[in-house]
Design a protein around this nucleic acid. Structure first.
Length: 275
DNA sequence: AAGAAGTCCTGGGCGC
DNA sequence: TGCGCCCAGGACTTCT
């Protein structure tokens, strides 16, 4: 489940390998993954394009190309982007292969075919709606305590749904939402609008601390996640609540509760996290 | 209009 | 052993 720390780790491992290389040819094995444009245009418009930089916005990876267009990839649940030398046998569920200059291949692998791939002209609004609607980067300067407080105040949903809403904050998914709420000692069903100034400050701190800690650990490999070099992350060893329903709370020892909240499996401590 | 629910997809874990 | 069932969930669409 690549979330912000995993996507950032992919970006950091990928950029030194592919920046400056040219996309010679693209092989499409499962075209359903490409949302726009059509497959023939996708192949033609990518051919000969040089990758200038690899950026990240929320959970989206942005490959800046020299023809005023950007290759946009969202890994969703099980997507993997792996760089390897040509000739290495492709893994199962390989849907796209970008043949780059000097014998390197960039491969998009996705067991569940949930991933999203776009090739969008720069500066044209409406091309990738989800990307344009993203809220602030939680590790960016614009994400201040007052920014968070103001956004919480305006929402009628609970704080778990708030954290998962990409238009409020970009990049948080189910794993880090649960870890952040545990760190901030907030019950996932607490209404966002009822979070006071002190709690909002704690939540702000927890968001930034947990995401930074996870990036330092190169992300969480709970099921499928690997970076562009094929390596797993290390944050799964530091998870306090995610995937630990029914086990003792690491803080107080009481059993952690698992419950469906905001349509997602949520784990929390009924003692440490209060409404 | 905002929020909730349904949809996509496959592998793994479970019960019988 | 093997089959069927359910679960995992991010963003999109559809419904209320």
């Amino acid at each position: 489940m690549p979330e912000l720390p995993e996507v950032e780790t992919v970006r950091r491992t990928l950029e030194p390998l592919v920046a400056g290389r040219t996309i010679r040819r693209t092989d499409i094995y499962y075209g359903g993954i490409i949302k726009a444009p059509d497959q023939d245009s996708f192949r033609e418009r990518l051919a000969g394009q040089r990758i200038q930089a690899v950026e990240r916005r929320g959970k989206y990876l942005l490959f800046r190309l020299d023809g005023k267009q950007t290759l946009i990839i969202h890994l969703r649940m099980t997507g993997q982007l792996v760089a390897c030398e040509a000739g290495v046998p492709p893994a199962a569920h390989t849907h796209l292969v970008f043949h780059l200059s000097d014998g390197l291949e960039l491969r998009f692998v996705d067991i569940r075919k949930f991933g999203l791939v776009y090739l969008a002209p720069d500066g044209v609004p409406g091309a990738v709606k989800g990307l344009e609607a993203l809220g602030p980067e939680p590790l960016g300067q614009e994400f201040t305590i007052s920014c968070l407080t103001e956004r919480l105040r305006r929402k009628k949903c609970n704080v778990k749904a708030f954290l998962l809403d990409q238009t409020q904050i970009a990049g948080i998914g189910n794993i880090y939402a649960d870890e952040i709420l545990f760190a901030a000692r907030l019950h996932p069903e607490k209404p966002a609008a009822e979070i006071g100034p002190a709690e909002a400050a704690d939540l702000h701190q927890a968001i930034r601390a947990k995401l930074r800690e996870a990036i330092d650990c190169r992300g969480t490999s709970f099921r499928n996640y690997i970076d562009a070099r094929g390596e797993k992350g290390g944050f799964q060893h530091r998870l306090a609540v995610y995937g630990r329903g029914g086990k003792p709370c690491p803080r107080c020892g009481r059993l952690l509760v698992k419950k469906k909240i905001a349509g997602r499996g949520s784990v929390f401590c009924p003692d440490c996290q209060r409404l």
